[in-house]
Design a protein around this nucleic acid. Structure first.
Lengths: 259, 259
DNA sequence: TCGAATTTGTGCGTATGTATC
DNA sequence: GGATACATACGCACAAATTCG
């Protein structure tokens, strides 16, 4: 440690602690030195030691538990979610296929409702102006689980213009329950041929983290997926996955339209 | 403001300032109250006022300029990075094309070096065991800029087995400098036909955030990209983009291999 | 060009509340 | 219940950057 100008003191202390984590000297779940401990050991102020730990916490390398201490929290090796559907036969649940390939039991709970689409969804589904307060979409909230643990949230929107009067109006009802949008739509003659996904990331909201049993503020990835049949959007979904458990895998071929 | 238990004081102050931003009372570039100003106006300690401003900074709603003040920085509508290359002719810089489509001036700086690939990269490039300490890859660090601002980091690895003795050993050297991997490889007869991208997200490290001029700990997305020619990996890169500025767009077609 | 005023960044010290062990 | 730990809040001081007359 250098008391000179070089770098701020609290960053030097953070570097020192980070090195112990990345080198493996401190492992997952191990307790980091406490604020008073660091302060007296290194001869610095408690507030300075506290700043150093906050750096590691903001980097996601540690979590503080009030009253207990600050603990190492290594980023887990993420599971891979294959998001490029090169399956020749898109039958069955894509999520279940991904999980079973990695030896995990997939499941989900859901909750469907018909209502009038909000403006943002109208844009994504290319809906016309609403007529009065007519209900024109089916919204379904999903919680997906792997080995009984919640791991993914999804909110799906399907226009009633496409599905009204068919056996698949409700996504999780009837013979094709749980088979995925593509297969369900195919059964009523709607051939989904294009997909677009827009991937973002941000700290999770309190509600999202709660439903995923995650620490508040932990990083999540968001996917806005839209399915098209003959250039017409027939389903769109907001998908939320915790970033410390999943990586999204996309692939394709060069040189011509990637679809 | 409530001096009672309710919520921590610095969060209440942060809420109050955030409300002024989201309501539009304070606009992009406007100066927030200074730390001493807040402290005396609200009758709180300067350190408490400072904490409140740090909350907004960590949320990406403000930036501090030492000596000048703290300024509103509204979350921009995220720029879209098109990551599915359906360009029939993959000529020119993909990054520049994305930026110019959105009316921004693209640029980059780089730094190339030949060295022996570390284990993780060996796996990704399917390299055999190293012979002694032979240098077998070219590593290039990039900092990409849009309108002079750093917006994306990338570290690219190319096996010397592919490029040794050709005019394109150094990515940013010679006639094809800045033209992108695909075009450069094509010029030596290596036809890149497959790509795989693995997308993750996490809080940025101190170094990453510093190089991107971002608040430490702000959310970033990571992309591990690998290019293949005839099923053989010929380049891999680690790409880092700040999540509050970019969304990644992937698209494809259903029902057959998505490439 | 210079200097005074302002502002952020860092670092010190202390104290209290509350959670955990 | 007592010891320990983190979270919050207060106070002060100085350095470095910026701004402006």
């Amino acid at each position: 440690m250098d008391r000179d100008d070089e770098r701020p003191l609290y960053l030097q202390v953070a570097d020192q602690l980070r090195a112990k984590i990345t080198s493996g000297e401190l492992q997952e779940g191990d307790r980091l030195p406490s604020v008073p401990g660091l302060a007296s050991d290194l001869g610095i102020a408690r507030s300075t030691a506290s700043e150093a730990l906050k750096v590691l916490i903001s980097e996601g390398l540690a979590v503080a538990r009030s009253g207990a201490g600050t603990f190492v929290r290594l980023p887990r090796e993420p599971q891979r979610l294959i998001r490029a559907w090169y399956r020749a036969t898109p039958y069955g649940s894509p999520f279940r296929q991904d999980m079973e390939r990695q030896g995990r039991a997939a499941g989900w709970t859901y909750d469907s409702q018909t209502l009038q689409a909000p403006p943002e969804i109208r844009t994504r589904l290319a809906l016309t102006e609403p007529e009065g307060d007519t209900e024109d979409v089916v919204r379904t909230h999903y919680v997906f689980t792997a080995n009984e643990e919640p791991v993914m949230l999804s909110t799906s929107w399907e226009p009633l213009a496409t599905t009204r009067g068919t056996p698949i109006v409700l996504p999780e009802d009837g013979m094709l329950a749980g088979r995925g949008v593509v297969e369900r739509m195919l059964s009523i003659g709607v051939v989904i041929d294009d997909w677009v996904e827009e991937v973002g990331a941000r700290p999770g909201t309190a509600m999202e983290c709660d439903r995923l049993r995650h620490a508040p503020g932990s990083t999540i990835m968001t996917i806005q997926r839209t399915y098209y049949a003959a250039e017409q959007p027939v389903e769109t979904a907001d998908i939320v996955v915790p970033a410390d458990r999943f990586a999204l895998v996309y692939c394709g071929k060069m040189g011509r339209f990637s679809g």
